[in-house]
Amino acid sequence: MDTQPPGFSLLAVDPTGARRGRLHLAHGTVETPAFMPVGTQGTVKAMTPEELEGLGAEIVLGNTYHLYLRPGCDVIRVFGGLHRFMHWDRPILTDSGGFQVFSLGPLRRIREEGVEFRSHLDGSRHLLTPERVVEIQEVLGSDVMMVLDECPPHTAEPKYLEQSLERTHRWAVRSLAARTRPELALFAILQGGVNPTLRKRSAEFLRDHPFDGYALGGLSVGEGQELMLATVEATTPHLSADKPRYLMGVGTPEDIVEAVARGVDLFDCVLPTRTARNGLLFTSRGRLAIKHARFERDPRPPDEACECYTCRNYSRAYLRHLYKSREILASRLNTLHNLHYYLELMRRIRAAIEAGTYARFVTEFRHASAGELKD
């Protein structure tokens, strides 16, 4: 593991504003823009670490809230951190768990000290403070740690949004003070709903503090793509150009392609793995619902333009049979394909930015991938 401080190199900027960069972390380098497969509980569902490496994944995401509750810090500490525990020697980013805690509704209570909540597993009481969240992530050995933030609904009243934002800023400063391992990156989280004034205030406040990157939180939570992208576009110009920008929980391939044009570098989402388990595949010509009866005798691969293991070896007919039979292999093969699609999309995005042709790439992508595959 590299004990040098984390860093970010901006290699190219396309005329659209899309950025090509390189994120230097304790367990390796991440080429950006990058997509992080989600491994909430220390595993990307249905995938082995070796399969993820084979797909070209350079970083995965875990979740502090879930790992804190199960198996717990004491267990992971025995193994020297999450990397050894889950058999993954490349970078890991861990969400602070703030979104999960605030999703508990009546099971949690917010106060200045932190968030008190009852476990969704056994009802036990817990208190997560900004300091405790950093401490947990340092035990995990997360290459990128996230500060504790409050994630209010985008429909919250303006006064509450402002109060929540100020509390998130105070928690961010406390997180910086609690950090003891400078080789692990610490990202701040911007909030402010879809209010451009609050988003600008959040960006300007946090960029004046020595965070290693910025995350745009509180988006893709029901506000719709148009409003989400408008908020991103109103925010990124106020962030330091020499730090990475992470759009949390986003999203669809279309969301990613559009957000890259607005200056975003990192993404994560459960969509490719969750939809795979539900029989929905992403292809170069749109989405394919493998359960449809028309694929019962179809000898073609899911995507004839795809070179993933699934498409090189299996037919739509067989994948439909596995899915309808509820075989575990259906989830594995579908997940492998969808993650290959997302990671290959990021490789194509990086190449287009390097060539200075990202606007053309966006136009071609919109035309090729919209809607459901019809044949």
Rank of each mutant, 00 (worst) to 15 (best):
P5W: 00
G7L: 02
L11E: 13
A12F: 12
A12L: 08
V13A: 09
T16L: 09
R22L: 15
A26N: 10
P33G: 10
V44Y: 01
K45C: 06
A46I: 08
M47G: 04
T48D: 09
E51W: 11
E51Y: 10
E51M: 13
L52W: 04
L55Q: 03
I59T: 00
I59E: 00
L61R: 01
N63D: 07
T64N: 06
H66S: 09
Y68Q: 12
P71A: 05
G72M: 10
V75Y: 05
I76K: 00
G81S: 03
R84K: 14
W88D: 02
R90M: 01
T94H: 03
T94G: 01
G98C: 06
V101C: 10
S103N: 05
R109K: 15
I110A: 12
R111W: 12
E113C: 08
F117W: 05
D122K: 08
R125Y: 11
E135L: 00
I136W: 08
S142P: 00
S142L: 09
V144C: 00
M146N: 00
L148C: 05
E150N: 06
P153F: 08
H154P: 10
E157L: 14
E162D: 15
L165F: 03
R167F: 03
H169T: 06
R170L: 04
A172F: 02
R179T: 02
T180A: 12
P182N: 03
L186V: 01
A188Y: 01
I189P: 00
G192A: 08
G193W: 05
V194F: 12
P196A: 11
R207P: 06
D212M: 02
Y214S: 08
A215F: 01
A215W: 01
G218S: 07
E226S: 14
M228K: 05
T235E: 04
T236A: 01
H238C: 05
D242W: 01
P244M: 04
Y246S: 02
V250Q: 09
E258W: 13
E258I: 10
V260W: 05
G263I: 10
F267Y: 11
R274E: 09
T275N: 15
T275R: 12
A276P: 05
L281K: 08
T283L: 05
L288Q: 07
A289C: 14
H292F: 14
P301T: 02
D303I: 07
A305Y: 11
A305I: 05
C308A: 10
C308D: 04
C308W: 08
S315T: 15
Y318V: 07
R320P: 03
L322C: 07
E327D: 15
L329C: 10
S331A: 15
R332L: 14
N334H: 15
T335D: 07
L336F: 14
H340C: 09
Y341V: 03
Y341R: 08
R347P: 09
R350T: 01
A352E: 06
I353Y: 05
T357L: 13
T357V: 15
T357D: 15
Y358K: 01
R360S: 15
V362A: 14
V362F: 06
F365T: 03
F365E: 02
F365R: 04
H367E: 15
A368Q: 14
A368C: 04
S369A: 13
D375K: 11
